[in-house]
Design a binder for these strands. Structure first.
Lengths: 233, 233
DNA sequence: TAGTGGTCTAGACCACTAT
DNA sequence: TAGTGGTCTAGACCACTAA
């Protein structure tokens, strides 16, 4: 029997993308269903499914049972942002990393943060502020609130030795979280720490993380001027 | 025959994540191979494969043929950033969108841009500048260079009617691209357009896109103060 | 209610790579 | 060279939803 090498799902995916790109399948239009394509390509339906699922995950197709598969009208491109541990991000750029712990105390968080985390606004959280360096130049300023109800061991940890960032990754992995990216002017204090001037444009990342239903931490990272986050589409 | 409902790959994925989270599988340690887990869960190997593949895509496992599967030491969390068409982003927030085309001319791009796109630095590109509004307040300022060699129809298009952003999505879909996110101070011109003051911290997105080996466009989007990009982990 | 995608199975072979 | 993940198949049943 002549059994030519089976067609790969990647090849089918590429062909699907070509048809979308070349308008053989028109935006908003229905495309053949899986069984039909499987016959056309001479492969199993599962193989077609894998290829179409990928295209749908990437936003190029919209799939619904019974209704079939359509080409997305306005493909929403998805970029993947990688959020590494700060130390590894710095070292990955070939620089030396170190950090200074500037503050560590139990206190009542700002209303806004307590609300966002959904915890008692009069409760206490562990408040940490630290400055991270890359090659002894200030890299970012970290302002963090840790929920001791979720991570009690944090109270007994010396965060001048391990950064809270890294300690949490190792000891209190979160299940999910929200991130926001923005720009903000440096205030006087931040300007001093980050070796810039008040009002300088800082790249700011805010992150709230949860372990199941339990809030873990709220952190604000203010990057020194010049920083840019990269990603590919 | 008693055939209890087959176990789902999602259930196996959840159990895998639980074992990682609860340290039953230690960071850096090897985990049982697929065949073994399939036997444990009483399912087909393909089902286990689907679950472990997902965990690996999300950065929690590292898989290599022959070497087996290990728990990642420093899970690099991946956030998914959605890049919608600007009009839809504004309208999705319940606001009215419109835009003004401020400039449209063929000219020689800055060296830096020509180099990044890998094209003749003396060639001409279509240069567009436009201002986008949300509810008649300035939303972002767009500075775009389009490569006419890749998208010749752009030369005959009236970008005061359709935004270049949307037109390109519909007429010149790209295959891949680079994105950078940063913060920058507003210059005098931008400050005027975005109704803010010179030096104000702007959130800036730069994007370069390609169709196969052919550069399509370089765009810089400067968002009015107050903008934040959101994502979930 | 019927059509389409979502998933599982049991088995097979392939591809990569540690040893 | 052998062990492990990557993928394909042919078939089956399930889940959702448009009509």
């Amino acid at each position: 029997m002549n059994t030519p090498t089976a067609i790969s799902w990647q090849a089918i995916h590429a062909e699907i993308m070509r048809r979308i790109s070349d308008r053989e399948w028109k935006p908003g239009g229905t495309v053949p269903h899986e069984a039909e394509l499987a016959q056309e390509f001479g492969c199993a339906r599962a193989t077609v499914n894998r290829a179409m699922r990928k295209a749908a995950e990437d936003g190029f197709l919209e799939r619904r049972r019974k209704a079939g598969t359509r080409v997305a009208l306005h493909p929403v491109r998805k970029a993947r942002l990688e959020i590494p541990v700060i130390r590894l991000e710095v070292e990955g750029a070939g620089k030396d990393w170190r950090h200074e712990l500037h503050e560590r105390k139990l206190s009542t968080p700002p209303r806004r943060i307590a609300n966002r985390l959904g915890i008692d606004p009069d409760g206490r959280m562990l408040h940490l502020r630290s400055l991270h360096f890359a090659d002894s130049r200030p890299f970012l300023y970290e302002d963090r609130w840790i929920n001791p109800a979720t991570v009690p061991q944090a109270l007994d940890t010396d965060f001048s030795l391990v950064s809270a960032n890294e300690w949490l990754v190792l000891n209190a992995p979160f299940s999910h979280g929200d991130i926001s990216l923005s720009a903000a002017p440096a205030d006087k204090k931040e300007a001093g720490l980050l070796a810039t001037h008040p009002g300088a444009a800082l790249f700011v990342v805010k992150r709230i993380t949860w372990k199941g239903a339990h809030p873990v931490t709220h952190v604000r990272l203010a990057y020194a001027p010049g920083y840019a986050m990269h990603s590919v589409i």
